[in-house]
Nucleic acid binder design. Structure first.
Lengths: 235, 235
DNA sequence: ACCAGCGAGGTGGTCCGACCAATACGGTCG
DNA sequence: CGACCGTATTGGTCGGACCACCTCGCTGGT
């Protein structure tokens, strides 16, 4: 009669705890924003030590599923695209060589589609925001500031596309360290003017609400960097 | 003179440890496949307790960056697309409602492009593998088996596209639990024959090495499910 | 009656030490 | 020379202690 606990020991207890908590959320027993029992209680419920439970919680925290507030408790995040896809930036940060090209290829595909969607749906307010970053980007020559406005420029466009998940993925693919690494070399070759032309083309397509032009402009924009990076590695 | 330790206490010590290990990898001080010092040594090096260090290691383990082998040591993974993007499945598993549609939209965009690329590049061997799963899928009526071959069908195509990163993302977007949830309802409406037709269309395009036909067929295939899911939520 | 301030209890964060379990390696025996 | 086995190493788990921070109710004054 020692099989009363339905816990077939597969993998580590921590891994099991992670799966169980994930299952609780997937099954709806834990709603977004809801507070979990305390670490101590959870450990007792799952029959493991607090140390192991803490590791499980930490793991789910970095995945963006849980959020621990010191002194208050542990909460389920809103499980929105941004929460869960934040870790996507890690991929971009740790990728090198050929994989960087692959990432840019993915970005080109998604960014061109997002820009096309944005051209069709963008509102005057959103367009104004895009223009703000465009002019700010062209008004300075501080690389840091240019990079920041460049990121914001594309972020606003992705947001205007109306697909938060896609925007979150693109955000990860354009993580600060990722772009800083690639662009450092790219911009050194006097690509500023070319970049400005491409940004202007994207902007024109948005203003004209021309999805096809927007798609082409965005694909060309990312494709330029992609091709440059390809030659950097190939030869 | 108590500032000898360059450790400005921001965030938890565990979080700091995570960042430091990530930085070590990003800077190349840790190569893929390389073994790390023991937990105990690492804890001493970073001036934290073993417990906190273990939480950091566990976090990086679930992210697919590190791999712990009981009794052997801790190793950096190969940092390949599959390793780092495995967590992508969590997003698919925990998403519901409108976000499922967004995920399918992303999948439609990527899958159609991947299928187009595959049509241009696929080799006879790869094509044979695709056909194997296609016939196996049509030869049974066991939902479990169909689902498995369906997954393999699209996985082979994604692999033939030649972009491992894209394939890994699609793999995550098609995670077993994700598809099981969506397809359960979809297939109940007698979508089997329609699905077979769509798969046949994709296959024809691959055989003909016709990228545009492949893109259209794949987009339509995913789009069907997407539209069905949209109506499920909308009314 | 109301509100500001304070204090106790609760909660996550960190640390320590011990022991268990799986592995790796070297010595031993056939 | 090779198969076997024991031991040292290393990750996995546990329990407890203490700290830092937050919450909320109590208290006191207005």
């Amino acid at each position: 009669m020692n099989v009363d606990e339905a816990a077939p020991q597969k993998g580590t207890v921590t891994q099991r705890a992670i799966e169980q908590i994930k299952a609780m959320i997937a099954e709806g027993r834990l709603e977004p924003g809801q507070r979990l029992p305390t670490e101590r209680d959870l450990a007792v419920q799952l029959g493991i030590s607090r140390s192991s439970m803490r590791e499980a919680i930490r793991a789910l925290t970095v995945l963006g599923v849980l959020e621990a507030r010191h002194g208050s408790g542990i909460y389920v995040t809103q499980l929105e695209a941004g929460d869960l896809l934040e870790t996507f930036g890690v991929v971009a940060d740790l990728s090198r060589g050929p994989r960087l090209v692959e990432l840019l290829e993915v970005r080109r595909i998604l960014e061109s589609t997002a820009t096309a969607l944005a051209a069709a749906r963008i509102t005057p307010d959103q367009l104004a925001e895009v223009e703000k970053h465009l002019t700010a980007m062209n008004a300075t020559d501080d690389p840091e500031e240019i990079l920041a406005h460049d990121l914001a420029f594309h972020r606003e466009i992705a947001a205007a596309a109306g697909n938060e998940t896609m925007a979150a993925i693109l955000e990860g693919l354009s993580s600060r360290t990722f772009r800083a690494r690639v662009w450092r070399g790219y911009q050194e070759e006097g690509a500023f003017t070319r970049t400005r032309r491409e940004h202007a083309a994207i902007h024109r397509a948005l203003v004209a609400h021309d999805p096809e032009a927007a798609r082409a402009a965005a694909a060309a924009h990312v494709g330029e960097v992609e091709q440059w990076l390809r030659t950097q590695l190939g030869g």
